[in-house]
Design a protein around this nucleic acid. Structure first.
Lengths: 142, 142
DNA sequence: CAGGATCCGTTTCGATACTG
DNA sequence: CAGTATCGAAACGGATCCTG
């Protein structure tokens, strides 16, 4: 049922929404998928390597929708499917996600960073613009 | 024990650390407290209005330390206390946290935003610099 | 008294089976 | 394919206890 009646706490740093969305592993992952990967369907999210469970995914998509970050629309061609799109509010997270990824990568001494990362670093503004544009495009006519 | 060789998953977006730290309500909150509030002791974190439990707090501080985001040092004047400081890596989160707070506030139609928020918006760079500087200062001679 | 650790009832998670 | 139902396992929250 998960009628999370939101016990909204007031803080002098209005971070409550951010806590719910960013401060949750799974919602963060979904937003990442929507932004940077070509995933916008239920089944596509499931294929993320982080292996989210179906019930948790359904719950988080509902939460994202409730917060106005994602909107659910019936799929254009396939009646069985639904498509999840980032709203403007969700798209506004793009720069933050990029910075977050860059931050994480900076201290991670793992193998060679992927090309994406290089672009994020050297061409941040353009990369963000392209990402948002691509996400919007996907949303309109996929 | 910094044996964080755990279940490191490889992703083409190296977001794993970010998931562990930012994608967790409590660690996110601790970092916020360290950055923007004058809290750097165990007891101080407990007084956050979000009411973290002592066992969870201890766990998250350990996790932050393991990830090299926070360091624990004996308190200068009071032998009973410990002080938690943000490392350089932790301080690098400042711009991201600021953007996150601004993002959250932009869509939150609650009461008048606090002064801090105004500064974050109108004077972002300077505000971040001051915040980091203040955190460092606190760390050295509090 | 500050910084935890431990116990314990409740909530959430994660895996899988199941349904429309 | 997109979810829901179920259930054991893990995490949480709160209270209390312990230790320097």
């Amino acid at each position: 049922m998960t009628t999370h009646a939101k016990n909204e706490r007031r803080s002098d740093c209005p971070i409550s929404v951010a806590l719910d969305i960013i401060g949750d592993r799974w919602t963060l992952l979904i937003v990442r998928d929507l932004l940077f990967k070509d995933r916008d369907e239920f089944g596509a999210f499931l294929q993320s390597e982080e292996r989210i469970a179906t019930n948790v995914l359904a719950d988080r998509l509902r939460k994202l929708e409730a917060h106005g970050i994602v909107s659910k629309v019936p799929h254009a061609s396939d009646a069985r499917k639904s498509q999840y799109r980032l709203t403007d509010r969700g798209l506004d997270l793009a720069p933050i996600l990029v910075d977050l990824i860059v931050w994480a990568a900076r201290y991670e001494k793992t193998a060679a960073p992927p090309k994406v990362l290089k672009r994020m670093l050297e061409d941040r503004e353009a990369f963000i613009a392209e990402t948002v544009h691509a996400a919007k495009k996907r949303a309109t006519h996929e």
